[in-house]
Structure formats: structure tokens, C-alpha cells
Design a binder for these strands. Structure first.
Lengths: 118, 118
DNA sequence: ACATCAGTTAGCTCTTGCGCTAACCATTGT
DNA sequence: ACAATGGTTAGCGCAAGAGCTAACTGATGT
């Protein structure tokens, strides 16, 4: 369930760049070729390709070349990895507020009113 | 609902480092001082402090100093920001599979049987 | 055959990230 | 008053990130 933490490094790092997030946004709608993906960005192709490679290396996309054209498609695993990490934190947080609530109710017994300020 | 994308840069970048993720994990259980947080890590204090600052600058934590001791507490906003981004992608993905299903059913009308291959 | 189109390779900048040490406050405890 | 504790500041080094240009390969269209 929990995966190798080093993979999370790349997964999150990939999301830290707006160009890459935009590419993922585009690919969520369906596969596309590199030049289709690159068109909206005011950036030299080699620079853009680095982002593509980063996304591929970090597992966010899968690509394959047919003839001279490379097609990219999004991958769902990193998605679920992020959700898993989020859920993990949520859990810790929950168990903490549980403890706080427990603490609070324990004290409610001794306090006169529950809506009194100050 | 959608927030300034530049903020997401820092938010995700912060998660790209295992030390910082661990700190957040610890803080999910409740507030802690810098030296408490630093203890588990084999790292010079100034190096560790950079992570603390990064987390603070990116909005993941809030800190305040009392006397000579600085206490850190986790912040929930970045959390929901990440969830929002995730949900946004999910939506695109969904509407895509909707379109695919629609495409499939449109063709089911004109095809003789719905389970026929080729 | 040739030109064009899609991507690739190589190599260069500049900035940022992430670690370190050494020296320095400033509060707290004796 | 002094020592110890908890952070902070300054500055250094190395690796990686993010962009560029120039030149090249290899498939496709005419």
C-alpha cells in the first residue's frame, strides 16, 4: 500500500512545475503527441522535451514512438500514490483531533457552560 | 476555488523532499519545537532549519517563537489545495471516459451486436 | 531525390536546492 | 555571573533544474 518514498520525490517534484502540471491537465483529456503538447508553450522544443522526460521518468506519463511521432498518455498510478499519501496524513490528523476531542470532553465535565467565551 | 498556480509550485516542491514529508508527518500528530523535530534526522541544525523555512514559506506550517524556542504547527490549506488539484484532474479524466463511453454507445446503435469483435 | 516535419543530441548558461562549518545571539537554568 | 540550551546568520560547495542555441537523425510528403 505505502510505496517506496523515493518515488514520491519524483512524483511531487514533477508537480512543482506549472508547465508539467499543464501537460498533465491536457493529457487527462486524452493522449497527445509531443508537438501538440508543446504548441501552447512559448518554449524551445528541447526545453519542453525535458519536461516530457521528467514526467516519464517520474511515472506520470507513458510514451511511445511510432514513425517520427511520439505519443504521450497519462498514467494513473502516481495519482493514487499522491492520494495515498494524503490519506495517510489525514489519518494522523484525525487520530490527533480524536485525542483533542477526548481531552476536550474530559474537561467539559468540569466546565460550567460549553458556549461561554473568554 | 482554484488558487494561484504559483502557490502550487511551492506546495508540491515542499513535498518533493523526504525530510519535509517526514516533518509534516510528525506535525500531523500535533505541534512540536524545532529541536524535537530535528532530533530524528542526521543533519546539521542550519540545514534542517532550511526545511522548516521552506515549509513555512510554502504555507505548510506556521511557527512562532516564545523565548528561545520555536514551535511549529501544521496548516491545512495546502492540503486542501492539493486535493483540489487532484479533483480537478479527476474531473477531466472522468469527462474523458464519459466521451469514450458516449462514443462507444453511439457506435453500438449502428453495429449489429454489441459484443461482436472486429 | 529533396524538402519538410518531428524529435533528438550536445553543450552552454544561470539559478536554486540541499548539505556543511564556524561563529554568533539570546534566553534559561545554576 | 556563567554555562548551557535553542536557534540564527553568514558563507561555502556541489548537484540538479530549467531555459537557450546549433546542429543532427530519421520518417513523411511531393
Amino acid at each position: 500500500m505505502a510505496q517506496y518514498p523515493e518515488q514520491l520525490n519524483g512524483i511531487f517534484q514533477a508537480l512543482a512545475d506549472p508547465t508539467r502540471r499543464a501537460v498533465l491537465g491536457r493529457l487527462s483529456r486524452g493522449p497527445a503527441t509531443v508537438s501538440e503538447l508543446a504548441k501552447p508553450f512559448d518554449m524551445a522544443l528541447p526545453s519542453f522535451m525535458k519536461h516530457i522526460h521528467f514526467l516519464e521518468d517520474s511515472g506520470w506519463i507513458r510514451t511511445h514512438k511510432e514513425g517520427r511521432v511520439r505519443t504521450c498518455a497519462i498514467e494513473k498510478e502516481p495519482f493514487t500514490a499522491v492520494e495515498a499519501w494524503l490519506a495517510e496524513q489525514q489519518e494522523l490528523w484525525e487520530s490527533r483531533t480524536d485525542r483533542l476531542e477526548q481531552f476536550a470532553t474530559e474537561h467539559t465535565v468540569t466546565t460550567p457552560a460549553k458556549d461561554t467565551p473568554q
